[in-house]
Design a protein around this nucleic acid. Structure first.
Length: 652
RNA sequence: UGGGGAUUGGUGUAACGGUAGCACCGCUGACUCUGGAUCAGCUAGUCUAGGUUCGAAUCCUAGAUCCCCAGCCA
């Protein structure tokens, strides 16, 4: 059995931590990398190829010497160089996270480099806003591509920075008789595409080379309108693989580009551009999703065609051979209960079904961040689901479990009441000095998990007095069996405080319960349970509920999020995914927040994150960016597991 | 009815001709000042049919099912 290599850094993007969990078997791409490393397929890192590539937007100018030293440890190692190449035509979503973790994780595991590259070859769809958001999201996820801050950073690149080089290569292909200018309209090309049995046709594939060169120059010079002509590769009009039926390499698009402005009016197609981008950057393993598998012959054909007539030492008319990376495909991540198509996500945003790309109900990285997800939890999730060529769908519950797992360990606890019910402790004493109800300051353990993990017994105070709020769900006048919470005549523990007993209820004219009256037992303060003569506790309460002091708690807007879709595969049954939108995916309530949290919780614009907490017995919550001084807004990231609710529904 | 892929418990994933394992979900129980967490246990699987072999999830043959491909999108 093969297992993961030792990680040069402290932890890789896949989330493996030295000395952490048991070694994992290698997934198929790691096995390819290992095989390549053993055979020396890609050579080793040298000072030359370790330096940043031409076109890098993040040169290692004032780099931290320590980071550079780490990068130096790369020298002599087998070369592994990956990249994440999104088109900036939308926000990144959870599916992209898998690719980011995979690519960055590979670079980190094998002491290689990871490039961030924008595949920005279609100005009609791309925007600077998307470029900015993608950079923000990739960095936040922890896939540091900046060579001056990340040991595996290979730099930031734009495909559009290679346009001149791509153009020169295209001219070269024309001159080699491997490409020609075609004046068929898009519609005509489509009509002549043929069928699996019938070959395509093109009247222009034998256009004289000189004429194609001249016309291609005219295309670049802007002498022709959109769609008037295109540059096509001369491959095989009868190939069963339609990608090889003389695919278009360049089209005319008179449109402003977010990076190159108006410098160009011809733009390379994906297949032509992508291999060149990978090659120029020295990428070893060009990882993409399964639907590109059928493009791989074309990926290879283009690079081989450029290399035809080229030599290793650069002698001869065409110069030196260019690097030929290996394309590898894997199955994309498809979680249940969400959609990831950029077109449909855009529709959600534009239709107003959500408030924006970072609406916490969205599956985008920025939405998950706003919702309270941690980068660690997303990385762990991506590691857990694995990397294969099998198309599968992942239960969204696993993502939710992942963030619960992480937040359980790191989130401070607090008590907050979402749907309040007033509780009066009728035997609570007054303070003789003021004549008002006494205020008790009780100890509250900030995070019992950290306590267990040796993180100290950090505590803070929480005020208790005569009038409290508890959760409305935690009281029932006529409770079913196995209801461990408050009910008439019943005892319950108030978390970190006293055991109380319900002695009565107050109702309004309509018969609704407006208040619960209780007595408290002073001997049970702070969790103490009086011992009997036999040394054993004289009683045991089954339930512990959370509470806040009515006088001290602070009101806050709390947004309770649920899944955006109520179908595990939106649209599968209804035929229209919009029909499966969950109308209850957002419920806003005014809750009563622990006064300590109300004072200290804040949003951090620099990190685009708000403080995260566990509101005990309810779930994990974080401060939203809509918060204003004195008016906090919280998002519910995810609920806690609730076996009582499950039991309750099961029982009917 | 062309070509390219895929198929292991409910879900995801290991196995690389030699004991079908792991995780999640689910179910039991223990523990617990969160009906949380933690711990222990249980349930459940090789798409089908042939063949090769001492031995097949793995190799061969045939079939089934699902996904991708005929953008001047990526």
């Amino acid at each position: 059995m093969t297992t993961r290599p030792e990680t040069p850094g402290n932890s890789d993007a896949a989330g493996n931590v030295p000395g952490g969990e048991a070694p994992r078997t290698l997934h198929f791409i790691e096995q390819i990398v290992e095989t390549d490393n053993e055979s020396g397929k890609w050579g080793v890192w040298t000072p030359q190829n370790s330096a940043t590539t031409v076109g890098c937007r993040t040169p290692v100018g004032g780099a931290d010497p320590a980071v550079l030293a780490a990068a130096k440890g790369r020298l002599g190692r087998a070369r592994v160089h990956t990249r994440f190449p999104p088109e900036p035509n939308g926000y990144l979503h959870i599916g992209h996270a898998k690719s980011i973790c995979l690519n960055h994780g590979l670079a980190a595991s094998y002491g290689g480099k990871f490039n961030m590259r924008f595949d920005d070859t279609n100005p009609a769809k791309e925007e600077q806003e998307y470029v900015d958001s993608i950079i923000r999201d990739v960095k936040w996820l922890g896939a540091d591509f900046d060579p001056s801050t990340g040991p595996y950073g290979g730099g930031l690149y734009y495909a559009s920075d290679y346009f001149e080089q791509m153009y020169q290569f295209a001219v070269e292909l024309i001159k080699k008789g491997k490409a020609y200018v075609c004046t068929l309209s898009a519609e005509e090309v489509s009509q002549r595409r043929g069928t699996p049995q019938i070959p395509a046709t093109s009247p222009h594939r034998d256009r004289p080379i000189a004429e194609s060169v001249r016309m291609f120059e005219e295309m670049r010079a802007g002498k022709h309108p959109n769609g008037a002509m295109s540059l096509r590769a001369k491959i095989d009009l009868s190939s069963p693989n339609f990608n090889l039926r003389d695919p278009v390499m360049y089209r005319i698009v008179h449109e402003h580009h977010h990076n190159t402005g108006d410098a160009w009016c011809i733009y390379p197609m994906y297949d032509w551009a992508h291999g060149i981008e990978d090659s120029l950057e020295g990428i070893t393993h060009s990882i993409c999703t399964l639907e590109f598998e059928i493009h791989r012959p074309l990926y290879d054909w283009f690079i081989n065609s450029i290399n035809e007539g080229r030599t290793e030492d650069g002698s001869g008319p065409w110069g030196k051979k260019i690097h030929h990376p290996q394309q590898i495909e894997f199955a994309k991540l498809r979680p249940t209960y969400i959609i990831t198509s950029k077109r449909n996500l855009l529709k959600l945003v534009q239709s107003g079904a959500v408030s924006g790309w970072d609406d916490p109900r969205m599956p985008t990285i920025s939405a998950l961040r706003r919702r309270g997800y941690t980068p660690e939890s997303i990385r762990n999730f991506c590691r857990d689901v694995g990397v294969t060529r099998t198309e599968s769908s992942i239960d969204l519950g696993r993502l939710e479990n992942s963030v619960r797992d992480h937040l359980n360990k790191v989130a401070p606890r607090a008590m907050t009441v979402l749907k309040p019910l007033k509780v009066t402790i009728e035997n609570w004493p007054d303070d003789p000095a003021t004549g008002k109800p006494r205020v008790d300051e009780l100890d509250f353990v900030i995070n019992p998990e950290m306590l267990e993990h040796g993180g100290g017994s950090a505590k803070r105070k929480v005020p208790f007095t005569k009038t409290l709020y508890i959760e409305r769900d935690d009281f029932m006048e006529n409770p079913p069996k196995k209801f461990f919470r408050l009910a008439p005549g019943n005892e319950v523990r108030l978390r970190w405080a006293y055991i109380i007993k319900c002695t009565g209820v107050v109702k309004d004219d309509a018969g609704n319960i407006t208040e619960v009256v209780c007595t408290y037992d002073p001997a049970t303060r702070g969790g103490d349970i009086p011992l009997g003569p036999d040394g054993k506790p004289i009683r045991k309460v089954q339930g512990t509920i959370h509470w806040v002091s009515a006088e001290h708690a602070v009101k806050a807007e709390i947004r309770l999020y649920d899944r955006l879709f109520k179908a595990d595969e939106p649209g599968a049954a209804t035929g229209n995914w919009m029909d499966d939108l969950n109308p209850c995916a957002l419920e806003t309530v005014t809750g009563y927040v622990d006064p300590h949290i109300a004072q200290t919780a804040s949003y951090h614009p620099d990190r685009h994150e708000g403080d995260r907490y566990q509101f005990e017995r309810l779930g994990y919550f974080c401060v939203d960016r809509d918060s204003k001084p004195g008016a906090l807004v919280f998002n519910r990231t995810v609920t806690l597991k609730d076996t009582w609710a499950k039991e309750n529904t099961r029982g009917g």
